[in-house]
Write a protein that binds this DNA or RNA. Structure first.
Length: 422
DNA sequence: TCTGGGGTCCTAGGACCC
DNA sequence: TCTGGGGTCCTAGGACCC
């Protein structure tokens, strides 16, 4: 028999993280906004009950917020990242193998435990006591089934936050309750196709002939069917995979109308991308810059520009990346009438990443770039706070910077953010 | 007026080679 | 001037995830 896998996630994670430090948020509707305060990306149960949808734009729910006194927060990723690490630390006390799947979800190796439900419930109590966020646990022979179990536990409080669906007779009974669109790996398009041929539940998808699944949705859908049948196709993987690309992209707080302002934003994004590379000990071989106007405004002139360039030699040096980004940004600039466009989003993407020590060398691999300067730059910005030292081309106006009008204090990582008690 | 950011995997099709 | 099959590699785009 295959080793049971658990998936553990936190209920409304961002909201739960905010509630740790502000008890007045308990029992009341709370939402957390996306970057730039654009739309709701996390909602408390109370906010969901008021009909606030995932991803709903803030400007469409202003009336509800006022009428029901919904508490609103900008995203505070520094805080959420730190809470996430604390939760993982507790998981590590309960299983030898943890695969971090997202900021609020982990797959856990649950093989070898005699009473899995008791074990998961003990872990759940411990996370609540030591970190302060509620979690739910689904257990099954495959990742897809574990996600189903987790989903059922989420919707049915009767399970007390833990459901072990390792026993096939239990999944026979429960899978008819899982709507096909709620299955891990089934998105909107595939859901529509499946419903078109009368497949509406996880139990019905499990019974779909494999050949038909492959024809309809490629090997991905075929794997989902096999996983529902209890045959693992998606391996448990607790080693961090070598990442292939990374991106820093942002909407602008106010639209960018001229090249100088746009380039200030792009300098900031390239700078951040270079920092991320160095944190991971990587160099990049390809850099892409893109920027575009607001696609939701069909009444305004539209433009989308993008250029890619190779980085030779591969680099993680801020000066190299900003220089390459400038060439791309200029090359992508509209040939005529650039100033009629209002750019609302820009980004820098890096691809062909390699660990620094694996990078290809040229015959004359002369020392270049400024590794000592980069080390000093990172040290200063870690010690004295982000953006203490920046390139001048990032500018001082920061008019492009995103909005975050409702951000809570970074309680666990920034001393200066703590409220002063007099 | 106001609509996020950062990833992965898969497939089709073109370029190129022998 | 006409004519083949099979392989690899790369890129763009779609779908999905949280």
């Amino acid at each position: 028999m295959t080793r049971p896998i658990a998936i553990s996630d936190s209920a409304n994670f961002y909201v739960s993280a905010e509630r740790i430090f502000d008890p007045t948020l308990k029992g009341v509707p709370v939402i957390v906004l996306s970057n730039n305060d654009g739309c709701a990306v996390a909602r408390s149960d109370e906010a969901k009950a008021l009909g606030i949808k995932m991803g709903e734009p803030l400007h469409l729910i202003r009336d509800k917020i006022t009428a029901h006194g919904i508490r609103v927060f900008s995203s505070n990723y520094t805080l959420y990242g730190d809470i996430s690490r604390r939760v993982v630390a507790v998981y590590e006390d309960y299983t030898p193998n943890v695969e971090i799947y997202s900021i609020d979800e982990c797959f856990l190796d649950f093989g070898g435990f005699k009473d899995r439900v008791a074990h998961a419930k003990a872990m759940r109590r411990d996370v609540l006591r030591r970190v302060g966020v509620p979690i739910r646990v689904g257990i099954a022979p495959t990742k897809t089934l574990a996600k189903c179990a987790n989903d059922i536990a989420k919707k049915n409080p009767i399970f007390g936050g833990v459901l072990d669906m390792t026993d096939p007779s239990l999944s026979d009974w429960l899978l008819p309750l899982v709507p096909v669109g709620d299955i891990w790996g089934i998105g909107r398009k595939t859901q529509a196709k499946l419903q078109g041929i009368g497949i509406n539940s996880a139990a019905e998808l499990r019974a779909m002939p494999l050949r038909q699944a492959r024809a309809m949705g490629t090997v991905v859908l075929e794997r989902t069917v096999l996983e529902l049948q209890g045959e693992p196709c998606i391996a448990f993987d607790d080693v961090e995979p070598q990442r292939k690309g990374m991106a820093v992209t942002r909407s602008a707080g106010t639209p960018m109308q001229d090249f100088d302002t746009l380039f200030q934003a792009i300098t900031a994004h390239a700078t951040r991308a270079a920092e991320k590379l160095r944190q991971h000990g990587l160099v990049a071989g390809t850099l892409t810059v893109f920027y575009h106007t607001n696609r939701h405004r069909a009444d305004r002139p539209q433009y989308a520009g993008s250029r890619t360039t190779r980085l030779i030699p591969m680099s993680s040096d801020t000066f190299d990346l900003v220089a390459a980004a400038k060439r791309c940004a200029l090359a992508a600039w509209p040939k005529i009438g650039g100033s009629v466009y209002a750019f609302t989003k820009a980004g820098v993407m890096l691809d062909d990443l390699l660990p620094l020590e694996d990078r290809p060398r040229t015959l004359f691999d002369l020392p270049r770039g400024s590794p000592a300067l980069m080390t000093a730059l990172d040290a200063v910005n870690t010690r004295f706070g982000k953006k203490t030292l920046v390139l001048a081309s990032e500018g001082m106006s920061r008019s492009w910077q995103l909005r975050a009008d409702h951000r809570s204090p970074r309680y666990t990582t920034r001393l200066s953010d703590l409220p002063v008690v007099k």
